[in-house]
Design a protein around this nucleic acid. Structure first.
Lengths: 222, 222
DNA sequence: TGTACATCAGTGAACGCGCGTTCACTGATGTAC
DNA sequence: TGTACATCAGTGAACGCGCGTTCACTGATGTAC
């Protein structure tokens, strides 16, 4: 589908059609805006300007602002999924270690990509309908699936297989998500915790998750 | 300070000065707006209208919008603190049970007061400086202190006292905060988890926290 | 108790701003013959 | 290869809107004498 280069600014760089790949450029611009000025800086006009086009141009690629935001969230989930996939693929001594590595990768992703993370978990930015379609929640579902897999593997290895989504998955998710949120939302970083400290905390939290995953099958009373 | 009633709309209701207590009314109105329309619905003008005054009136009570938002967050932290105090005061069989009760109260507060919770943990709404002053972070610090106390009590009871803020506190906080966030931000409720399920999950998470608190003192390797 | 004055919480009009969105258009690209 | 046409990604002006904030003012409240 890509036509030949127009005049070729740089060798090897293609300018397929007019701008090239405005859609992608807009998503990247939007993410950068959030990185620099937080959620309030995420506007259609600013994204267009940063991408080097007029502020009406985005409407040829996104129905409205919510659709652009949804695309940013989607891109974020895609990146998270890749980060988790990498962590899951790394050699691990046991299913438990693999789950812990996944948890640490989750926290690390949030700390290193606060802009994406914030957009991903801000439902009011992209109201229902904006992100519809089968592929919209694809990356998010895929990322979640990796957690489910890792938890299931731990339970299987311990002789307590569980069908469907083990409750331990949600506990594990809550732990790392909470740690990431507290860091991004200020309380933790405001308390003077160094960025290095977050890694140590992540280890602590994932350790706790493992206990929770173990206990998740048993009655929780006590 | 409070003058006599003006004309007394309802028996026993005082109208101390002009409106009465506009400051409080504005904070309540702002919270209601968030409850009904989310963060985007939180505007100075709407809060003023809901409180029954012109949109310029709030400036006699708040320097700017950020100050109003900070007041809402403050009110939220005050309510959270009271909820945690109640949970901490309830009879408990052991420090461990008390900590678990605190964790459950935290999640319950978030689920029952999503509007406050959202404002409380949205740093970009009330930028640094807006909530300055010794009393600004008072309620938040007090609420956090209750968690620290409960964790410290558990460690003491287990013969492993720890000075300052035990690392287990942050782990415990991360767990319940993550659960609350995942619920409020949609993923969990979108997965079809019933409100009743959140309570069961909270029990699971607080159970996991206890293991983490135990492990927090020991080296986290392995 | 009554009068004069100071204080200050409200009003309403107005401001400038940036936003999302629409629209008629232009001109580059791709395609049919 | 060349011409005519259709498509569609961009432009730039314009729209209406709601926002936060300012300002001169009004009138109720509290206080001094």
């Amino acid at each position: 589908m890509a036509g030949g280069g127009r005049s070729g600014r740089a060798a090897g760089q293609r300018q397929p059609y007019h701008h090239g790949d405005l859609r992608r450029a807009l998503v990247e611009a939007a993410a950068e805006l959030v990185a620099e000025g937080g959620i309030p800086a995420l506007t259609l006009r600013a994204a267009a300007q940063r991408a080097g086009v007029s502020h009406a141009a985005p409407y040829h690629h996104f129905r409205d602002k919510a659709a652009l935001v949804a695309a940013v969230a989607d891109e974020g989930f895609g990146r998270l999924d890749r980060a988790l996939a990498e962590a899951a693929a790394a050699p691990a001594a046991s299913p438990r270690e693999r789950l812990a590595a996944l948890g640490r990768a989750y926290v690390r992703f949030a700390v290193e990509n606060p802009h994406y993370f914030r957009v991903m978990f801000r439902p009011e930015l992209a109201p229902p309908g904006a992100a519809e379609g089968p592929e919209a929640h694809g990356p998010a579902a895929r990322a979640f699936g990796r957690l489910v897999e890792a938890v299931t593997a731990v339970l299987r290895a311990e002789g307590r297989p569980e069908g469907g989504v083990p409750a331990g998955t949600l506990v594990a998710w809550a732990g790392v998500h909470g740690l990431a949120s507290l860091w991004l939302d200020g309380p933790l970083s405001r308390m003077g915790l160094a960025p290095a400290g977050i890694e140590a905390l992540a280890r602590l939290v994932t350790g706790a998750q493992l206990e929770a995953v173990r206990a998740a099958g048993a009655p929780e009373g006590g």
